[in-house]
């Protein structure tokens, strides 16, 4: 591609090679719309936070109930993202490498958590796992309770996060060059050695990106979690619910402070994900 633009360049070297019209208007519109919908409203949050004193801010974001909610939100997101790394890799592997009946349907179904409204997922998982549900009725006699406690939060976040891992790993596995595996085998590696020493390193960046995306989504998730969590203060109350609770008590300052912490964390996660994706591109773009 580079060589083609170079070939066209001499005639237009003086004017920058912007043959296509519409740069100013599309960039202008993009910036305006981005500012109006995203940047100005988000800055309202930051400005509002600056009207609080440091003490007010600190008390709001470190109250015992809030701290318990951080532990639950981050702990559950971490566990769910780890589960999704294992099963997401497995699903991606099976979809890319094996042939079986109904594969196309299974492949399409993986995106269900993207398409199904979170509130629907929430009430449906709750109905399944409650004591009288299809799954819950078999678990209750065993003393396993998956609904209305932190376990439910993890289950909901596994559901929400699964497609992130599958959809980031799948294309990388598809592009993986089989020659490397053939070479490894010819050189005497066992299948497991080939996987752990040849395949796994090449998909690790994608796996890590998928993990970070699933984790970020889990931290902010609200709709699917609140139905199944039971929402007991100190035990099964997630951080977004704390914000809603403070808003309902007209504690705007408190809600803003906690929301700023969440915003900051999601911003950091976004930067990490971007960095991981850049690493992944370099990784796959590097000459074999």
């Amino acid at each position: 591609m580079l060589s083609r633009t170079d070939a066209a360049a001499p005639a237009k070297r003086r004017a920058p090679a912007r043959v296509l019209p519409g740069f100013n208007i599309t960039l202008g519109y993009t910036l305006m719309y981005l500012s109006l919908i995203v940047l100005i409203p988000l800055s309202a949050l930051v400005f509002k936070t600056f009207t609080l004193t440091w003490d007010q801010f600190w008390t709001a974001v470190t109250g015992p109930r809030v701290m318990a909610s951080y532990r639950l939100t981050f702990g559950a997101s971490l566990i769910a993202a780890l589960v999704n790394v294992v099963f997401g890799l497995l699903v991606a592997w099976v979809l890319v490498r094996y042939q079986f009946f109904g594969k196309k349907i299974v492949d399409a179904l993986v995106d269900l958590p993207f398409a199904l409204p979170t509130a629907v997922a929430g009430i449906s998982l709750t109905a399944l796992l409650a004591g009288n549900g299809w799954v819950g009725q078999y678990l209750e006699p065993l003393g396993v309770q998956l609904a209305f406690n932190p376990n439910g939060v993890v289950i909901a976040l596994i559901f929400i996060g699964l497609p992130f891992v599958v959809r980031t790993v799948q294309p990388v596995l598809e592009d993986a060059e089989k020659e490397l595996e053939e070479a490894a085998t010819c050189l005497g590696a066992s299948r497991w050695q080939t996987f752990s020493k040849v395949i796994f390193p090449s998909i690790a960046p994608a796996l890590l990106t998928g993990f970070a995306m699933a984790f970020a989504r889990g931290v902010g998730e609200y709709g699917s979690v609140i139905f199944i969590a039971g929402n007991m203060p100190m035990i099964s109350e997630i951080t977004p619910l704390i914000i809603i609770g403070k808003l309902e008590q007209y504690d705007y300052a408190g809600a803003t402070a906690v929301a700023t912490v969440m915003l900051l964390i999601s911003f950091i996660l976004l930067l990490i994900i971007n960095g991981l994706q850049a690493w992944q591109r370099r990784h796959s773009g590097a000459p074999a």
Partner: peptide, 22 residues
């Protein structure tokens, strides 16, 4: 710019609602 376009994906929906209330 590309990163900022992605930003709403990583903001919690609850925070998104809150900013409009503010």
């Amino acid at each position: 710019l590309t990163t900022l376009v992605d930003l709403p994906f990583s903001v919690s929906p609850v925070v998104a609602g809150l900013v409009y209330v503010l």
